[in-house]
């Protein structure tokens, strides 16, 4: 995986056109991070659990995990919005992950249908660290401009 700052920056770029849909935007940003958050902490803290949590870093397993999480939303519209955001973010995450090389832990995109692996192998997982300052700046700029826009819009609507 690239670091989560890089993943988040890719999410911020995608949510740029979604200024009026805060819930969808936030869910997409969460979805960009979730595949790693659902798996990495477990097998970093408890080595040996990789096999058990790995399915949540595959599209089908991740979609099921999203379905489970979105059951916490009682509002049907909000639940669908959350599912759309989490799935889109997750796909963006998997797309970024598929660009990197792997030595041991291949990404099984079609699991549990088959254990066939595929990746582009353009860079090693730690390589995007060099771009973290740029990515962080990108996040700050996009967030700041969106926040400003949102605040000014709210002010306008109050005046109406």
């Amino acid at each position: 995986m690239p670091d989560l700052v890089t993943h988040l920056a890719s999410g911020y770029v995608v949510v740029l056109p979604l200024r009026d849909r805060t819930a969808l935007r936030l869910m997409l940003l969460a979805g960009v991070l979730l595949p790693d958050l659902l798996t990495r902490p477990f097998y970093i803290i408890f080595p040996g659990t990789y096999d058990f949590v790995m399915p949540m870093h595959t599209p089908i397993g991740y979609a099921i995990a999203c379905w489970l999480m979105t059951q916490l939303f009682s509002d049907r519209t909000l639940r669908n919005t959350a599912m759309t955001g989490l799935l889109t973010g997750g796909l963006l995450h998997f797309a970024a992950d598929s660009l990197q090389k792997q030595l041991l832990t291949p990404y099984l995109w079609l699991f549990p249908v088959c254990r066939c692996e595929a990746h582009w192998g353009l860079f090693w997982p730690e390589a995007p660290l060099r771009a973290v300052p740029f990515m962080a700046l990108l996040i700050i700029v996009i967030h700041w401009t969106q926040f400003r826009t949102g605040r000014s819009r709210r002010r306008l609507s109050l005046n109406c």
Partner: peptide, 28 residues
């Protein structure tokens, strides 16, 4: 707009949690 009973949510949560557990076992 909210699902008043929540029974369907409980059913979906239980089935998806079971599916995740089965996937984890199958992966291992």
């Amino acid at each position: 707009r909210h699902d008043v009973t929540g029974h369907r949510r409980i059913f979906h949560a239980a089935t998806s949690a079971a599916a995740i557990l089965i996937l984890g076992w199958w992966s291992w």
